[in-house]
């Protein structure tokens, strides 16, 4: 199968959907050249640097029958548009009694690894998961990002595509033929029987590397990639944990009130899953700090395959009857 990078796959998804549906248009403070070439400057608009206006204009255009895409670029830039995201996009379908739909795709690049410091590196998806009325996903592969973007463009709600900055140039197989990936469906990226690692984006690849290493010691790791954050596929997560009895959650964001906390709650508040747990749940997250610049500091802040391996060893030690001091 041919290979595309993560970012090429995303752009291909947008282009295919724009060919299919003339109601789709694209706004960004920096227009993507191949899209402008194919669709023209009316449908692929380079805008003033006014993320708040763009975010809100997408809502109005969507309510009038269009299907806008707004590219915030770095997720940190969308914080100037928080009113439009939280008070408007997320709420008005509900607040207006469901009388019209607001099909919008917002795109944002998240994560660290670029040594760009705190105002250009962040993984704030949990903030948005906390707001009812927004769907969102964070894919780990070119295949998934293409399929999810296509689904999101066809969805009748505001959807945020969180895209991992670290993965932009990473290649992977993407079929030529049309396909989509459903929202709300996790993917088991590797099957295993001793421990479940739920990981997102770049950390899916780190978890897979950790699994490979531990397999040499006879430890069998299952890697679950939720892909979609809202709606989150609780069933697949619980099913995996019921099978392995152990759960490690790896997230490039900090742990506080985060995605990792949500997954831990999903596992532990369900009686059937809780009953199968052989050890406390372990979170392997970034430190709860603004992302620092210097490589020494940045590397220290983010989890990686080594920390995932340590986390796995910890839950393997913490078996029933063996009280483990954390």
């Amino acid at each position: 199968m041919r290979e595309l990078t993560y970012s090429e796959a995303a752009v291909e998804a947008v282009a295919e959907e724009m060919r299919r549906d003339p109601k789709i248009f694209y706004m960004s403070t920096d227009a993507i050249a191949p899209l402008v070439r194919e669709f023209g400057a009316e449908r692929v608009r380079a805008t003033p640097i006014t993320e708040a206006a763009l975010t809100g204009m997408a809502i109005g255009a969507a309510g009038c029958g269009f299907r806008p895409i707004v590219d915030w670029r770095q997720v940190t830039f969308c914080f100037v548009a928080m009113d439009q995201i939280v008070n408007q996009a997320a709420k008005i379908h509900y607040m207006f009694g469901g009388q019209v739909t607001f099909p919008i795709l917002y795109r944002a690049s998240v994560g660290g690894g670029g040594l760009t410091a705190a105002q250009h590196s962040q993984s704030p998806y949990s903030m948005f998961m906390n707001v009812a009325g927004l769907k969102m996903f964070l894919p780990s592969t070119p295949y998934d990002i293409k399929g999810l973007i296509k689904t999101a463009i066809r969805d009748n709600n505001p959807v945020i595509s969180f895209e991992s900055g670290r993965l932009m140039t990473r290649k992977g197989p993407v079929p030529e033929e049309d396909y989509t990936v459903p929202l709300g469906k996790a993917d088991i990226k590797r099957e295993g029987s001793d421990v479940t690692v739920v990981a997102l984006a770049w950390l899916v690849h780190e978890a897979l590397a950790a699994a490979e290493e531990l397999a040499r010691e006879g430890i069998s790791v299952e890697v679950v990639d939720p892909r979609t954050l809202v709606p989150l596929d609780r069933e697949t997560i619980r099913g995996s944990v019921q099978k392995t009895g152990r759960l490690v959650i790896a997230d490039e964001a900090g742990p506080t009130a985060g995605f990792s906390a949500e997954v831990a709650a999903i596992a532990t508040e369900d009686p059937a899953t809780f009953a199968r747990l052989k050890a406390p749940v372990k979170r392997v997250c970034a430190l709860q700090v603004p992302i620092p610049y210097s490589p020494v500091l940045e590397n220290h802040v983010f989890p990686d395959r080594q920390r995932i391996i340590e986390g796995i060893r910890e839950v393997l030690r913490g078996g029933a009857g063996q009280a483990s001091a954390a």
Binding site: A53, G56, M57, G63, Q84
Partner: peptide
């Protein structure tokens, strides 16, 4: 809060 939304309706009208 509504100014940007209705500006999007203006863009829709233009398109």
């Amino acid at each position: 809060g509504g100014i940007a939304i209705v500006t999007g309706a203006g863009l829709a009208a233009k398109m």
